[in-house]
């Protein structure tokens, strides 16, 4: 799981152009939106695309993203349980 979390952090940094942030600086339990990384609604859409492109997870209801993107741990757990690739 740890390896997957690191990979996920690297993917998020790359796809969201978080150039000043290193994987180890992202707290696994901190909220991704609002305070945490300060992501916005466009970033949320990019995360939905990332899940589909890299893990074959098609999020039918974008509103679910609010729950899934709560933190790195929650997101990694969801990917682990639902990935098709």
């Amino acid at each position: 799981m740890e390896e997957m979390i690191l990979k996920l952090k690297q993917e998020i940094i790359e796809v969201l152009n978080l150039e000043d942030i290193k994987p180890e600086e992202i707290d696994n339990d901190a909220p991704l939106f609002g305070e945490g990384l300060g992501l916005d609604s466009i970033d949320a859409l990019e995360l939905i695309v990332l899940m589909e492109k890299n893990y074959g997870i098609k999020l039918q209801d974008p509103a679910k993203g609010k729950e899934i993107f709560k933190s790195i741990n929650v997101m990694a757990d969801y990917i682990q349980k639902n990935r098709t690739r």
Partner: peptide, 9 residues
Amino acid sequence: YYPSPALFV
């Protein structure tokens, strides 16, 4: 086919 929202804006 993965349209990028971040590029689209």
